[in-house]
Amino acid sequence: MNIVNAVTNKIKLFDYKKFLKGEGALITFIVLFLFATFKYDQFFTLLNFKNVLRQVSMLGFVAIGMTFVILIGGIDLSVGSTLAVAGVVAAKVSPYGIGVSIIIPVLIGIAFGVTNGILVTKLKIVPFIATLATMLGIRGIAYIVTGELSVGASSASPGFIQLGRGYVAGIPIPSILFVLAIIAAVLVSKKTKFGRHVYAVGGNEEASKMMGLKVHNIKIVVYAISGALSAFAGVILTSRLGAGQPVAGEGWELTAIAATVIGGTLITGGVGKFTGTLYGVLITGIIQNMFNMQGNLNVWWQNILMGAILLGVVVAQSQTARVSKSGNS
């Protein structure tokens, strides 16, 4: 009996269906990576890797925040607008040094996030509408504050410019920060009370309430994290471009949602992981990179490919969910 059990256990050690379901984003990423390597000579070069990594890191911060929000069963459409306001503010305060240019925009981002959180929890507005409203409002602020013009960052603050353009040990600083943020998010999600409560609230809000979890606080903190990370992305973007632009980040909310969902996070909340989001973000970067190198294709094919991958992931998810369900009964 025990032997039989042991054998079946061993066979089950590698459950490919489970693997496909859990790591669809990783597999997609590897396929795209191999394809690009064979197709484009310039792809597999250190310089190109650095560029791609730097390019995706700003979307990456936004996507980490978005993953938290989607995990609790919410959505945050205001991230792109928050990014723009933060970027503009960072440019304006850049003469006061790098510290101020990071802290003030991030605080503003947190304020926007807390606003979203309060709208969603205390005022019980559905997240889609609440953050759609703040998305419009915050974007408006970005245009009004700048008079629709881009704001140059002060060259008197070389430290600030380094944030977006500099390297440490040959690796772009934004990429290092992004990887650190992913590691932090993974740890928070797996090892801390807050992280587990995020999953619990997303998995079954009513039950979480009954278990005595502070559902409202958790949600507000999650939206604040999303606001803070989007703002930080805006700061880095300004640093990299040398200017803050009121149009920055337009449409990023949707790309971030796409990257999160491609990464395996369920849009209904409660299920997902941050490594998945990392792959989701890398996939968007690699697609863009491939199209740049191809050169002769209409750029809108990028969107078509992204859309196709997104659909593929979601269809695969629903199929595996069906298989595991019928397998149980």
Binding site: Y199, A207, M211
Partner: peptide, 21 residues
């Protein structure tokens, strides 16, 4: 409760101690 008030996608042990980790 009749409708089980647990979090379906979390592990068994986590459901036992959720909120009192």
């Amino acid at each position: 409760y009749q409708e089980l008030d647990l979090i379906p996608e979390l592990s068994i042990c986590e459901n036992v101690f959720l909120g009192r980790e």
